[in-house]
Every structure is written in structure tokens, then in C-alpha cells.
């Protein structure tokens, strides 16, 4: 276990290596957030209701998705495909280390850094801007939201890793990932709340894994789901996670067999 802790720690150090890069990355994140905030603040006048969302809920939704997305969908595993394709995987196969745990440890390092800085920056912004956002005070909802984010994070890790495994067969790992991100942005609800879509469409995409990456945790936070809906959602997202876990393991096994047969 200690080795994986060490990997997370080294990932931290690596992020701090280039100071300018690091600062720019944070500034970009804050500017992006402010842009969305002021855009929606001016689009949605006070006291108007937009598809069942008043100004405060809508702002909370939009800001919340960009926060959760920076935790859930930022992943170091984007590099997996190239690593496999260029044969760097060999360096891991000859050491007593688990490749999946290695990347998960890197993600834990990456995400924990993200969270710490986000919390810090958001607190400052909150006191400067006094945004009219919705604050959930029910601890039960907050707890369930954390559970759903945890599942979302693992689910995304598996899916993104799976996309990286394309590297076993083709050097073009980026094209499929690009398409995936476009679909993700739409169906995960990072552009708008998914329930403003027509009912039939919404009831279908509720069964896709994407919905549970951003939209679902936020709906729990906003308190717009009842307990049964929450547990149903957690169950579906958990089922997807299990599905992708086995899909990943199976694909890895086949890919590795080819890798150790052909070499890189």
C-alpha cells in the first residue's frame, strides 16, 4: 500500500515542479468559473423561472457541475494509451507493481490537489462575490452526494482507462477519446441540466452511465430527488461501475496477451 501512497505523493511533487504552469492552470480554472457565473447571472434575471430552475438553483447547478467535473473528469489516465503504444508499459510489467493501482494512485494525487485548491479558491470567491447560490444544509443529502461523486469518479476512471487500452491495437487513441468527451459533455449535463430535455429523451438517458457523472450528484445536492430516486440512481451507477470494471479487466487481459506476444 505504501508504494501507491508514494506514487500519489510524487504526482503532487510533479505538479508543483513548474510553478508558472501550475499558477496558470489555477487562474484558467478561476477565470472559466467566473465567466460562466457572470454569463448566467446576466442571462437569468432575478425572480424568473427557467424550466423549473430559478436563478439561484441554476447558478448553483452551473457552478456545481464545473466544480464536480474538475474532480470527476480530470484524470491522469489520459496518458495510458500513449504509454501502451510507445511500449513504456514494459517498464511497469517488469516491476512488482499493479498498473491499475498505479494510475489510480496518480489520480488520487491529482484529484486531491484539485479539491484542496478548489475549496480554497471557492471560499475566497464566495466571500468576495456573495453569489446567490443554494446551500444544502441536510447532511444526509450531502453524504449521499459524496457517495455518488465517489462512484462517478471510479466509473469515469474505468471508462477513461478502457479508452486508453485502445493503445494496444492502434496508435490513434485520441480520436475515440475526443468523440467520447463530446458525448460526455452533452449527456453528463455539464452544459445544462438534463431534465430540461423532453421527458421521453430524459427517461432514456437516465439509464446511460454519463448521467451519473455530473448531473446526478448535483441533483442530490439541490435536494430535488427523493430518497427512492437517489437509491435507484446509486444502484444504476454502481451497476455501470461493475460492468466497466469487468469490461476493463477483460480488455486488459486480451490486450496484454497481444502485447506480450508481439512486443513493442
Amino acid at each position: 500500500m505504501k508504494k501507491y501512497f508514494m506514487i500519489a505523493k510524487i504526482t503532487w511533487e510533479e505538479m508543483f515542479t513548474y510553478r508558472i504552469n501550475f499558477i496558470m492552470w489555477r487562474i484558467r480554472w478561476i477565470l472559466g468559473l467566473l465567466m460562466i457565473y457572470f454569463l448566467w447571472l446576466s442571462v437569468l434575471p432575478k425572480n424568473t423561472v427557467f424550466f423549473g430552475y430559478n436563478q439561484s438553483l441554476m447558478l448553483t447547478y452551473i457552478l456545481g457541475t464545473s466544480l464536480i467535473s474538475s474532480i470527476v473528469t480530470s484524470s491522469k489516465t489520459n496518458a495510458v494509451g500513449d504509454e501502451i503504444n510507445q511500449g513504456n508499459l514494459s517498464n511497469f510489467l517488469i516491476r512488482p507493481i499493479n498498473y491499475f493501482k498505479y494510475w489510480f494512485a496518480r489520480d488520487v494525487g491529482d484529484k486531491s490537489m484539485n479539491i484542496i485548491f478548489c475549496v480554497f479558491e471557492l471560499t475566497i470567491l464566495f466571500f468576495i462575490l456573495h453569489p446567490p447560490v443554494f446551500i444544502q444544509t441536510n447532511f444526509y443529502f450531502l453524504f449521499l452526494m459524496f457517495v455518488s461523486i465517489l462512484i462517478a469518479l471510479i466509473l469515469f476512471f474505468f471508462v477513461n482507462f478502457l479508452l486508453g487500452l485502445i493503445g494496444f491495437w492502434s496508435p490513434e487513441v485520441w480520436a475515440p477519446r475526443f468523440v467520447f468527451y463530446i458525448i460526455l459533455n452533452f449527456f453528463a449535463g455539464s452544459l445544462f441540466p438534463l431534465d430540461i430535455l423532453p421527458k421521453q429523451i430524459f427517461s432514456i438517458i437516465q439509464f446511460s452511465p454519463f448521467t451519473y457523472l455530473l448531473f446526478f450528484p448535483l441533483k442530490i445536492y439541490l435536494g430535488q430527488l427523493n430518497i427512492i430516486e437517489i437509491y435507484k440512481g446509486l444502484l444504476i451507477s454502481f451497476a455501470w461501475t461493475v460492468f466497466f470494471y469487468y469490461a476493463l479487466r477483460y480488455t486488459w487481459k486480451i490486450g496484454l496477451k497481444g502485447y506480450t506476444a508481439q512486443g513493442k
Binding site: 505504501k2 508504494k3 508514494m6 506514487i7 510524487i10 511533487e13 510533479e14 515542479t17 516491476r95 512488482p96
Partner: peptide, 13 residues
């Protein structure tokens, strides 16, 4: 990172 870090990582591995 400095090489030292890689050594320490391998120490754990």
C-alpha cells in the same frame, strides 16, 4: 523530478 525521487519510489515498490 530529481532522480532521487525515482529511487525512493522503487524502494517502496
Amino acid at each position: 523530478l530529481p532522480a532521487q525521487e525515482s529511487f525512493i519510489l522503487n524502494k517502496e515498490i
